[in-house]
Structure formats: C-alpha cells, structure tokens
C-alpha cells in the first residue's frame, strides 16, 4: 500500500510542478489556404521574404507567438509570380538548405500532409542546434500552389528542455484541408 501511495503522491507532485501546458488550437488562414496550430493566438505582421535564390523580396506574412522560452513562427511567402512558380522547386530546396545552414543538423524528416487531393503536399522537417548556443530549432518547409510555408519553432536555451514536445507539435501541425475547418476566433 505504501509504495502505491508514494507513487500517487509522486505523480501528483510531478503534474503540479509541470508548467501549464500550451493549449494548442488551430487557426485558419483562408487567404493562404492553410490552417496552423498555435499554443496562443499569434500576432500577425506583414514582412518581406528575401533569399539569394529568390533574387528579390516578395511579400510575406509572419504569424508568431512566444511562450515559456519558445518561439513559434509561421511564415507564408507569396511565390505566385510566374517566374517564381517556374523556379519553385529550387526555392523549396533552398528553404531546406537555409534551415540546415543555421546550425548543426540533428535530424531531417520527410513530411507529407493531406490536402484533399490524390497527391498530398510533401515537405521536409529539419532540426538543428543553432550556432552560438542559440537553442534548438525545427524548420518545416512546404511549397504549394504558389505559397511557401515555413514553420519554425525555436527552443531557447533558457527553456532547459531542448527536445520540448511542443516544438515538434508546432512544426508538424499544418493542415491544407481547410474546407470544413472552422474559422479562427
């Protein structure tokens, strides 16, 4: 009986000590054809996406929130210009290569997200330890229908938990099937 009681007490203590877990919720961004989970309502800002391969800046929208020493960022860049559509394969590959160049690569994982078509949307998740002890970062790149989707989760060193489960959840929670999804609050 004593060991069982001890175990229950330990579990209670563990849950009591744990930080409030992020309440992930989907936000639907119909103009970008995507729904994305965030642990908190993200801020939105208009920005530019510029890379060496792009050769110029294109409009981008960044949704971002921070919580408990983690940064959750979702960038959607407008690649619908005809010349960019023609080069979209290279721009997608560049997104992955740039994510890898940010630090020491720990993992690469292929991604495949349902979009309601027969072929689905393919992407790649890259996990790196950022240079100069900047923390651990996961980047997921997709390019679909003229939009580049870049999902970034950064676990800052102060978090003390480089493999925080929320990072992987954020990196991989993306939906292209939004026909029946509810609108964001």
């Amino acid at each position: 009986m004593r060991p069982a009681g001890f175990l229950v007490a330990l579990l209670l203590a563990a849950f009591a000590a744990a930080p409030a877990s992020a309440a992930f919720q989907y936000y639907v961004f119909r103009e970008f054809g995507v729904a994305k989970e965030f642990p908190l309502e993200p801020t939105r800002r208009e920005a530019e996406y510029r890379t060496p391969l792009l050769g110029r800046a294109v409009p981008a929208t960044i949704f971002e929130t921070t919580e408990d020493n983690m940064v959750y960022r979702f960038t959607v860049a407008d690649m619908r210009a005809v010349d960019l559509v023609a080069r979209s394969a290279g721009l997608y590959a560049e997104c992955i290569a740039m994510a890898e160049a940010e630090g020491k690569v720990l993992a690469r994982m292929p991604q495949r997200v349902e979009d309601g078509t027969a072929f689905r949307v393919y992407g790649q998740l890259t996990s790196v330890d950022l240079a100069e002890a900047g923390g651990r970062k996961q980047t997921n790149c997709f390019l679909n229908k003229g939009w580049l989707y870049k999902v970034e989760s950064i676990v800052l060193p102060a978090r003390g938990e480089p493999n925080a489960a929320a990072a992987l959840r954020f990196s991989t929670s993306l939906r292209f099937r939004i026909d029946q999804a509810p609108d964001s609050p």
């Binding site: 023609a86 394969a89 292929p110 393919y122 790649q124 997709f142 679909n144």
Partner: peptide, 26 residues
C-alpha cells in the same frame, strides 16, 4: 509546373523511402 516544388519534394521522399536513409544533403 504549378506542382514543381511538390514533385521535387516527392522525388526526395521516394528516394528516402527506398531504404534506410544514410544522408540527405543539399
């Protein structure tokens, strides 16, 4: 052409699916 990025991504995906990935480099 509209699906070029997805076709490239699928090519990589299929190559990795053929076995145990050892490397994936730019």
């Amino acid at each position: 052409v509209l699906r070029a990025a997805n076709i490239l991504a699928e090519c990589i995906f299929l190559a990795e699916s053929a076995g145990l990935p050892l490397a994936n480099l730019p």
